[in-house]
Design a protein around this nucleic acid. Structure first.
Lengths: 340, 340
DNA sequence: ACTCATTTGGAAAACGCTTTCCATTCTGAT
DNA sequence: ATCAGAATGGAAAGCGTTTTCCAAATGAGT
């Protein structure tokens, strides 16, 4: 009974493995995190003992000692929107196989909530941070700057990132969609954005559209704002209002594709000929857009690829490969279907 | 120059705050995590200094010392499927406001990958674990058992959980859908499941369906398996094969609703009258099911609520409130649309 | 003014690892 | 056999907190 009594559920520690293997704690540590520093024979013996004892290294302790956590903090607005969970998945596709874990936080489109999450992540001493969007609170920027933690801003093309960025330009996408519509003979565009969520992205898309109308010498697009819960497809009713208030409108661009699909449904109910009377287009893509009739013409962003590239950039930086400050610009694709 | 030189980017530490505030480190620690143990005056002074210095407590160190991390490990098969990211979001809805962070891992429907993730999470000494599904590798079960970490298994009704569980019964759902179809006069059912992913859930749904046919004295449903990438809606073509190989079939149940929607599209192309010639139904629901014509009759599970309840159960346990081992059974809803 | 109980703040010992030296023990070339 | 140099294992000093346990200071009751 001279065996030290361990508290219930107490996990086995490095020291105990060392004792059981007849080596010092240092050696056990090395077998696990620096295998080359130890002879094959010792290593195999120690690892066998460790496995037998069910040893699981305490990463709090190891992080504290080594100042690396192998954890990446990721902020997304919400996981309820497949777009964002897809970006997340993309990042995970790259990060998890590389041995990094993801600490996830939801900002609900609030820069203050984002800032709080960043603070929490820094408290966890994450090795890197992935942010969604290019708007951040001054406090947040300050926090990140002085921490020196590698950061990738995802989703929007951002030529002047905090640190690194990867994404597509919403202005360009808006302009491209505008030119496409104008090329199809449309002359009176309308734009429907959400309000309160994702504001700068909406603004960029509208700005792009406006660019296209200017180029063509047309009136600026009529802009509407709705308060749609994203992903629900509510808000499509506005198509009726637009046609009533601006009867000359011959193309409506929706900032979200769910709403756009909702609008197509409503247009059918209103016996509006799509695209004869009015064309409909949207941003973002999912199988819904392809399945509805008429199919929705829309801009597809490479969302999963965005996440993957963000992960890759972070890994490169963590491996010490990248010169500070790198921007990756991704494109987009116009998916041309029947609605426009 | 007797000031200790701190390395670049070195975050300020407890000790430095203490020095600046003219108190001991202990006092600073208490101001932050145990404010009542310190007088109001001291506390306010210390917190002001801490804020001024931009002090962010190191959670690795604090977790190591306190044996609590305020981190919950969550395993989902994939974030590419909105169903699972919705469960995640539900859990986050409850956990984040309570001051817990989510460490996320993707199992890709592999119990071995799940086991590895659990091991990693235990290494991080998470305060609790959320798992998807009721199937786990023996190693995983063993690991969790001996660690004593609170665990909630989500998604499936699981009367004999590892620890706690919350979800709906897929057998019941299958049976309910079967009875519904039989009640509508259908006599020859077919079932289409995916293979390789989510196997036990598929099996449960089929089992439920079979239960319904048995009750009614009908032939067991003809079962098909496809290898569909979830969420893409591929695989709907099989409706043609089924009708050819089993012409008497008058109802097809799809294990996934995306595939079911795909089948509706294909049926239209094949000029199969839905639901006249054959009824179509599915499991799971999203806006797609409601927007296609004919609308898809389907089973809706309370996914977000599942995640939220899982979060609540975990919090209750962590607050020491729950007697070990609790099961929450959630229901489901038959959404009756035109397709069946 | 004098106890006694109660706050309030501090010293020191964990928490479980990694890391930086150092001291051995092997190699194989002379 | 001898010796440099590499390979191998260990001792000790952190990493930045929290958590006892104590001492000093404060306040209430006589």
């Amino acid at each position: 009974m001279s065996q030290p009594v361990s508290p219930i559920n107490s996990p086995v520690r490095l020291q105990e493995v060392a004792q059981a293997a007849g080596v010092s704690a240092v050696t056990v540590s090395r077998c696990i995190s620096n295998p080359d520093r130890v002879s094959r024979k010792t290593r195999e013996h120690v690892l066998a003992i460790a496995a037998e004892l069910g040893y699981i290294p305490n990463r709090q302790a190891s992080s504290l000692a080594s100042a690396r956590t192998r954890v990446i903090g990721v902020v997304v607005p919400t996981s309820a929107n497949p777009i964002h969970s897809m970006v997340m998945q993309g990042a995970a596709d790259v990060l998890e196989p590389a041995g990094y874990q993801i600490l996830l936080g939801h900002s609900h489109f609030s820069v203050d909530a984002e800032c709080d999450l960043v603070r929490t992540f820094l408290g966890h001493r994450v090795d890197g941070i992935l942010l969604t969007g290019k708007d951040h609170s001054p406090d947040c920027v300050d926090l990140l700057r002085r921490s020196g933690t590698p950061v990738v801003e995802m989703f929007d093309y951002n030529p002047e990132p905090l640190d690194m960025s990867v994404g597509s330009s919403n202005v360009d996408a808006g302009a491209a969609l505008g030119r496409y519509l104008i090329g199809k003979g449309r002359r009176h565009l309308a734009f429907v954005g959400h309000i309160g969520l994702d504001d700068s992205r909406m603004a960029d898309r509208l700005a792009g559209l406006r660019l296209a109308t200017e180029e063509a010498g047309l009136d600026a697009p009529v802009a509407y704002e709705i308060t749609a819960t994203p992903g629900t497809g509510q808000g499509g009713e506005i198509i009726g209002t637009i046609i009533r208030e601006h009867p000359q409108t011959d193309a409506v661009v929706f900032a979200g594709h769910y709403v756009a699909v909702g609008a197509i449904r409503h247009a059918l109910d209103l016996h509006l000929d799509i695209p004869g009377r009015v064309a409909i287009a949207g941003f973002g893509d999912s199988i819904v857009s392809g399945w509805i009739r008429p199919g929705l013409t829309t801009i597809r962003f490479p969302v999963r690829e965005t996440g993957m590239e963000a992960g890759r950039m972070l890994l490169a930086r963590l491996a010490g490969k990248t010169p500070s400050g790198r921007v990756t610009r991704l494109g987009f694709e116009i998916i041309s279907r029947e609605s426009a």
